[in-house]
Design a binder for these strands. Structure first.
Lengths: 201, 201
DNA sequence: GTTAGCATGTAAGGAGTTACATGATTTT
DNA sequence: AAAATCATGTAACTCCTTACATGCTAAC
């Protein structure tokens, strides 16, 4: 759970930070958060929840008193104080791990709760990671060792273009970040229920 | 090796079909073929080569007679007749597996050796897979259950845009394919069709 | 009345990574 | 002389998926 698993852990912690939830619901949210084709299985989620429970970051409370007429007792997971601590600490981190392929997406998804300097560091880290990638691919294309038919070329061209766009996107975000943009309210940790004070920039 | 592993198997077979190679070289080629951040480890490659050998698709020949003055004896892998058979058969396949996330890239990389109707089927399959994805994300965004802050929204918007571009790319490729494109370059720039030849089914 | 969705889990296994182990050769 | 690259492998481990096991409720 030290490298990849951190992504799932953070995502679960973050979603439960928003609101307590049961496994089934959590999975749906996770699927749209982790996005794009990836579908998380229960075989991953439930053991992860168990581990987080054992670590003391979450507690499971069974809804047996209010079974809502016939409905199966659902197990609702809730963040502990340690869990909240862990989550906020994780959000402060801005080392290389925070901008690798596996973590960047989740880190970005929680940007609203991340401090602005941290956001910039992560965005820049991600950008230079992608730029390194572009560089090495361009070099190896120039050295021209490999198979070159029209399709291989097209695949390479398309890949290059996609990554270039990604870099452009990141650059825009960084600039917006630097000019105050995206303005978020300075983190709300007290209120358990948010009544949508402000959603548009 | 039945589902995901098929991708690596196909890639190895395809590269060895081009030319016999030793493991180290193979890995480098594989890395640029599988592309983008993915770096294949020896811990995956060598066991795979062993399995392919056991299956009779490749043979390993040690270069002991010509150690090229001091150079460590390299083990060169070569396709057998069965391996060639297997490779060409694999290239004919155009079922759902050929356009999933894990295989599409490799299938595309070997398009130059794939029959044109097969190419079209794979491209169309891939496109409709992505379109399904777009659809479901758009729906869930409309139903609007999830967390909505500026960053989550931006992430979603960007993801949507990327997939849309991908779909556009595929559409272009399909059209080019239908008008003879790529292999034997008729270099047809006239483009007489302003009317849609109907791409959706 | 049967399909689809809700709900919680476990067991087995696959694919791949990291770290280890070893050593020669070329470049800086 | 050191560092990078060439070269081949193995063992342990991790993350995740698939398939299984169970059963209820709502819609069609």
């Amino acid at each position: 759970m030290s490298k990849r698993g951190a992504a799932l852990e953070l995502a679960v912690l973050g979603l439960l930070h928003d609101a307590p939830m049961h496994g089934y619901e959590l999975r749906k949210q996770l699927n749209s958060l982790l996005g794009w084709g990836r579908v998380l299985s229960y075989g991953t989620l439930y053991p992860c929840l168990k581990a987080l429970g054992k670590a003391g970051y979450i507690v499971a409370t069974e809804q047996k008193d209010v079974p809502a007429r016939g409905r199966r007792a659902r197990i609702v997971y809730k963040l502990t104080a340690e869990g909240k601590e862990r989550f906020t600490q994780s959000l402060e981190e801005s080392g290389p791990a925070s901008w690798d392929d596996d973590n960047f997406g989740i880190r970005f998804a929680f940007f609203a709760r991340t401090a602005s300097p941290t956001r910039v560091r992560i965005l820049e880290g991600r950008r230079s990671r992608l730029e390194d990638r572009l560089e090495s691919v361009r070099l190896s294309a120039q050295r021209g060792r490999e198979r070159v038919d029209a399709y291989t070329l097209e695949l390479q061209r398309h890949g290059l273009e996609s990554v270039e766009r990604e870099v452009g996107w990141l650059t825009e975000l960084i600039e917006r970040e630097r000019s105050g943009g995206y303005q978020d309210p300075p983190e709300d940790t007290s209120k358990p229920d948010t009544s949508k004070p402000d959603s548009s920039k």
